[in-house]
Design a protein around this nucleic acid. Sequence first.
DNA 1: CCGCTTCCTTGACTCGTTCAAGAAAACGGT
DNA 2: ACCGTTTTCTTGAACGAGTCAAGGAAGCGG
Lengths: 158, 158
Amino acid sequence: MHAEDYSATLRSSSLRVTKQRVAVLAAVDTHPHADTETVIRSVRESLPDVSHQAVYDSLHTLTEVGLVRSIQPSGSVARYERRIGDNHHHLVCRSCGLIVDVDCTVGHAPCLSPSHDHGFAVDQAEVTFWGLCPDCRSGGSGPSDQGEGSPEPLSPDV
Amino acid sequence: MHAEDYSATLRSSSLRVTKQRVAVLAAVDTHPHADTETVIRSVRESLPDVSHQAVYDSLHTLTEVGLVRSIQPSGSVARYERRIGDNHHHLVCRSCGLIVDVDCTVGHAPCLSPSHDHGFAVDQAEVTFWGLCPDCRSGGSGPSDQGEGSPEPLSPDV
DNA sequence: CCGCTTCCTTGACTCGTTCAAGAAAACGGT
DNA sequence: ACCGTTTTCTTGAACGAGTCAAGGAAGCGG
């Protein structure tokens, strides 16, 4: 996706187009499940002087209009992704924090409506699968903080 | 549940029985989905001088041995509950933060295994339903921070 | 009742995130 | 092309949940 596309995307959500927002959108696009710090680093590769606040503001705004989605598994900081509206879920490694997407093949019924909604108007079901990623399972080399894992192991309270 | 029962529960998990731990266990038992601050307040009703650290330590220990479970919906602080091992899930109000339990009637299949596990050893599926609670739906009186809702509305990034 | 081990108290501290005020940039209209 | 209004960005301070560390206190097996 090119800068013009990001601009168009922003405009189509009635947002002012600023280089900061374009860069943040690009960063989230190219770094799925990145946390804010990663986004900041990525944005600063093209815009060395952006403030962290601009990134926080942009992420919030983009999240508000639905251009990005934020997820926050227990014990993790906020992470952002651009895959939206397809009801996919996440697989999180308890050891290294790696997050991968999983499609919701069961589709509608079970994943989208609780057995009893207690009168709530439910608009979303979020599923998080916890476990150990292949690298951490084999354990040979211990937790292998690769990919988009968090710096420290999560301790998501089994 | 009485103090003796909590003691027995602790002992059966090979934990030393201290009044702090008994009080924390009791607090979580009587305040489902309470956050740490609420637990601290509750514990201090019977033990006015407990340190917050003792509560944090106890909650961690109890979570580790599986006597309590911690949940942390996006935008919320950690919350604790004693219903464990029954694979129930949560319904969270986006407006007031109210959390209620929902049973997982669909049981096994869809909620417990992702369509493709990417090589992960999955041990838990956590489902969070997002929506508006009855009170916040009617909106008549605005967000009604009753029950165990969080002090401030969550903004869990739709 | 003793001694070892674990736990609690105290207090400082980290880190992700937010708040606030003023400067800068976007953009619709002239 | 420029202006003015509105939104957004920069700067820097602040907040709060949670953690770290050292020493004293309590649990519990012998």
